[in-house]
Amino acid sequence: MPELVIGERRRDIGDFEVGRVLPFARRRMIGPFVFFDHMLPVQLPAGVPRSADVRPHPHIGLATVTYLFAGEIMHRDSVGSEQPIRPGEVNWMTAGRGITHSERFEKARAEGGPIHGIQAWVALPEADEETDPAFFHHGSDELPVFEEDGVWGRLIAGEAFGHAARVRTHSPLFYLHWELTPGARVTLPTEYPERAVHVTAGAIEVGGQRYEQGQMLVFASGAPVDIRALEASTVMALGGEPVGPRFIEWNFVSSRKERIEQAKADWRAGRMKLPDLDNAEFIPLPPDPGTPANPMS
């Protein structure tokens, strides 16, 4: 049985609705995962306004990963990257000492179409918090995929079940996408001290208890976890070694409060470089940044 169940907190952000899972008051992180938003399925009309886009904004001290089930998002950043994010692909952005980027719905604006995905942030270990910013793209054909007995899985990042993803990470972790047919069974990796699953669609059973779309189940270290799909289900599994507590304000993550204050001052003063290919506008620092308000990584 899970030691904690976290439900999505719905947030209306204009053209989108998201289900925020992490951070949560009783569980701030799962391994190094410090932020987890479910972008709920939506059908965007052609001509969706530019106000739906996420204008250039900054990050420090983390890596971001946007994983889509449907749709396309155009990413541009301050290290010169311009890369569409498509279903099943990985765009892993290491912010380190500082990066800025935008995410825009250009394909949907031109053609209309769906958007559905997960936004996650991974805190960097203290030794790597000030690493150089970088961006890595991996196509769906570059990621390990496994299929057996009604289970289809893709390893997005890290290591699990003898597979290793090509995504460069900075601490031991795993991040999995499972598609389960009714009655299919999976088990969580046991080698990581912190583990969780998110029921992104459908319903599953753990320990004789039913759990449904929008719930994240957090499990104790070392305990075997057997999961059975009660219907066709999409499940995201994640976890890893903890990296220590983190401060989070707006889009900044750090082990040191004073580093976040410096990042806020740098952004306010215009000292962080904007994306070369998207520098005509940006999101100003909110008056009270608080915890992340922006669902896009």
Rank of each mutant, 00 (worst) to 15 (best):
S102E: 01
D278T: 01
E126N: 04
G47S: 04
G112S: 05
P295K: 08
A229M: 02
T169F: 10
A70G: 07
Q83H: 13
F16Y: 08
T234A: 14
E142I: 02
Y211D: 02
G31R: 02
H59K: 07
E106W: 15
D266E: 13
G61S: 03
E126H: 15
E142K: 13
V48W: 05
M93P: 04
R168V: 12
D276R: 15
P193W: 02
S221F: 10
V197S: 08
N294S: 11
V206D: 14
V48P: 03
P242I: 01
P144S: 04
G270W: 10
P58R: 05
E179M: 11
V253I: 14
T64A: 04
G71S: 04
L188G: 05
A110L: 06
L155D: 03
K264I: 15
S221N: 10
D132E: 14
A164F: 15
V42L: 03
G80W: 01
A196K: 03
N279I: 05
E231H: 07
M272S: 09
H137F: 06
T94E: 05
P189A: 10
L230Y: 12
G208L: 03
S297L: 15
T169G: 03
F35A: 00
L173G: 05
G80I: 06
H177S: 15
H101T: 01
P287F: 03
F33M: 10
E126R: 15
H57F: 04
F35K: 02
A25E: 13
L277A: 02
R104P: 10
E191K: 11
G222M: 08
S171A: 14
R86H: 10
V65I: 12
P193A: 05
P242A: 01
R10W: 14
A220H: 13
S233F: 10
D53E: 07
P56H: 00
R11G: 01
P284N: 01
W121A: 04
V199D: 15
L173W: 06
G61M: 03
D128I: 04
R26E: 09
D278E: 00
M29G: 07
E3T: 12
H116V: 04
E89M: 11
Y67G: 08
A237W: 12
F161V: 00
A165Q: 02
Q119T: 07
A232Y: 15
P286Q: 00
V122Y: 13
I115F: 11
K264H: 13
D149M: 06
A157L: 01
F36N: 10
N91V: 06
V21P: 11
L4S: 06
F136D: 11
Q215K: 00
E241K: 14
R259S: 13
R20S: 02
I115L: 09
K107G: 10
R50D: 12
I99T: 03
A63G: 11
R27S: 07
L277S: 08
D37T: 10
G270L: 07
P275F: 06
R228N: 11
R166A: 15
G117L: 05
I156C: 02
D37E: 11
G202F: 11
E212G: 12
G61D: 05
S81K: 09
Q215H: 05
A46Y: 13
G113W: 13
V42E: 11
A220R: 13
W250D: 04
Q215W: 07
R27V: 05
M296D: 10
G139M: 06
